[in-house]
Design a protein around this nucleic acid. Sequence first.
DNA 1: GCTGATTTTGCACGCCGTGCATCTTTGCAT
DNA 2: ATGCAAAGATGCACGGCGTGCAAAATCAGC
Lengths: 207, 207
Amino acid sequence: MQLMSEKSAAGGGLRERKKRATRAALAEAAVRLAAEHGAEKVTVEAISAAAGVSVRTFFNYFDTRDDAFVVMDADAGARMRCAVLAAPAELAPLEALRGALAAEFAEAEQDHELWRLHAEVLHASPHLLARGVGAHMAAEANLAEAIAERLHGADDGLYPRLLASVAHAAVRTSMDHWSAHQEEVAFLDVFHEVFTLLAAGLPAPPA
Amino acid sequence: MQLMSEKSAAGGGLRERKKRATRAALAEAAVRLAAEHGAEKVTVEAISAAAGVSVRTFFNYFDTRDDAFVVMDADAGARMRCAVLAAPAELAPLEALRGALAAEFAEAEQDHELWRLHAEVLHASPHLLARGVGAHMAAEANLAEAIAERLHGADDGLYPRLLASVAHAAVRTSMDHWSAHQEEVAFLDVFHEVFTLLAAGLPAPPA
DNA sequence: GCTGATTTTGCACGCCGTGCATCTTTGCAT
DNA sequence: ATGCAAAGATGCACGGCGTGCAAAATCAGC
């Protein structure tokens, strides 16, 4: 249990803290091992050993081996939801989303090293990028709901869902592009460029 | 080898035809079994048996069990590529894509029953929707390349990739929405509505 | 410390996916 | 037709994934 980044620290009793610590340790071990040996070569056994728990315990925390590479903390969805609802009502939905996501990533980028490793791992195995989309499907649904609520839900659900899924695709593309050009550009710059393109209706680029 | 829809029929020698037949039989068996018992409960063994081949052979055709639920014929990517390149140069890239995809789906919809079952299966296990994105990641790359070529590739690759990934997200959302409202709307209508929203920059919906 | 609840762990089991050796089928030339 | 070489299909063995179950360890409140 040596690995562990003390973020989102104190809350509740010992039990709660230990659970979060273990989860974080597993996720971190997974990413570090993947960055070193390649995600495909990392077994659940290795991850569990590095985090100091049994293999069986790993599966108490993650449904799938791949999930360990992909996780961002569980309540990110809730935060996004609040941020979207709190945004000024006159803002276009897409802009509200852009703001919420930007805030989220700005915070995530605090933990530079892990975030960078994470991006590298995802870039190295595109397979996990897709997995990421799957893992965030629930988040997509939440977002869609929040967006629908913003519009006092007169909609049949197509628009909110489209917005949420396109946003995820945009984020995915941003991360992939950025992790391939980490030295040259900042992630948030790529992110904003992408959302600007979206808002403009994806016109042919000027150059 | 009783199951088999004679689409994309005659081409090349016996070898080629048999291979395509086996592949089609496996894919069709997979979808039918999934529609009946739920995708998660369908084993590779069952699929192979239904298609009349050995389990080992299944894995000669698909890398993954899930791939069998998701596949569309392999050269769809090539067709898309051609269609995108053949589109009039003055068309916006997004519109070129819309046209190519629409043509592709119009053809796929020929085989009504399978297409419907397919959509149902994907809708029932969102997990596979994501998998679909993964499976078409290569297609995404191809599309991106084709798009880049259309723009005589002065771009660093961000725009084409964004366009391709957003298009896939849009298609995914369209299919999901449509399969939940199959009786009320036509797939192509949903599809075009979605692309119209995209082209307009995802503004808040009128209603 | 004792008790009840939660968590961790070991164990057994079945399915997934792959490498390898073998056998069958196909394509082709004679 | 017949034989030969290439390609595909199959069986087998093996390791990793993921789950249900029951026993052991840990935590919370008294």
